[in-house]
């Protein structure tokens, strides 16, 4: 069964390496099935490029089902493209019209140096999480699951924050390239639960300091992060981070 196909042009960022000067190249993407995902469209273009002995466009991807956080690019000026609450791999070509020219750029932020083409180094996020340190747990036998009571509201808020997949779209979309939404989600996820309480104060200070050290900007409340987030992480997490920070900032027992 031959489904509907469209022909597109893609204007994509090509950069050979971290130190190279990048530039846009335009390629034809012909006979693209509207049922293909955005990444599958890039696969088709890459096959063509390889057939002509050209370097394929490098892009990050892993699960291709919207849960790993590896993929992502700024498509026509919007992180992860035009569909809200959707990662790039779950964006389908039926969202585009025949004859469209699609501009594809990597996340641009000082904290996310470009490795190649659309691939950026997001290890800054790993270091922010590492800075948060450990969570004290009782060693020995596993406790009963119901041994620590967690209020329903706290459990829900922690779970919503934990939906963050660390893709970096918040940084990409933010006019300040701020990592506040990511950092706030990670802080909130642990601060809401009783298990996260012993290191609560040192954690928020250390993670915010690491966020600054990585060269991300600060939050000016533009809320573009929330609009771009494929997991619909709320700005409320940033409010919560600020609240946690204030409590820890002047606390004598940090």
């Amino acid at each position: 069964m031959a489904g509907k196909t469209i022909n597109l042009k893609i204007k994509v960022w090509r950069q050979a390496g971290p130190e190279s000067k990048g530039e846009f190249e335009t390629y034809d993407a012909k006979n693209i099935s509207v049922d293909a995902s955005f990444l599958e469209m890039l696969d088709v273009v890459n096959n063509q490029l390889e057939r002509h002995d050209k370097e394929p466009v490098a892009f990050d991807h892993d699960c291709r089902e919207g849960i790993c956080g590896m993929c992502g690019a700024v498509v026509n000026g919007v992180a992860h493209g035009p569909q809200t609450a959707t990662t790039l791999c779950q964006l389908h070509m039926r969202k585009f019209k025949d004859g469209d020219t699609i501009t594809i750029e990597p996340w641009r932020a000082k904290g996310f140096p470009i490795v190649k083409d659309l691939v950026v180094d997001r290890s800054a996020f790993d270091r922010i999480i590492q800075a948060g340190g450990f969570v004290s747990v009782r060693t020995g036998q596993a406790p009963d699951a119901h041994a620590i009571p967690v209020p329903k509201k706290a459990a829900d808020e922690a779970m919503d924050a934990a939906a963050c997949i660390g893709c970096g779209a918040c940084v990409a979309a933010c006019p300040n390239a701020s990592a506040s939404l990511f950092t706030a989600a990670k802080i909130t996820q642990l601060a809401k639960l009783p298990q996260g309480h012993p290191e609560r104060k040192t954690r928020v200070i250390a993670m915010v300091q690491q966020m600054d050290k990585e060269g991300f900007g600060s939050c000016s409340k533009h809320y573009e992060c929330e609009a771009a987030c494929p997991k619909e992480i709320k700005v409320s997490n940033i409010t919560n981070m600020n609240r946690e920070y204030m409590k820890a900032m002047l606390s004598p027992d940090v």
Binding site: R108, K110, G217, S220
Partner: peptide, 27 residues
């Protein structure tokens, strides 16, 4: 803060469309 925010994005986007609800006042 504004200077640090500017420095946080050294290379500019060719296209950057704001899709959230930020108002002109915010901008």
């Amino acid at each position: 803060l504004a200077r640090a925010n500017r420095a946080a994005r050294k290379s500019r986007y060719d296209q950057h469309n704001y899709v959230g609800r930020r108002s002109p006042a915010t901008r």
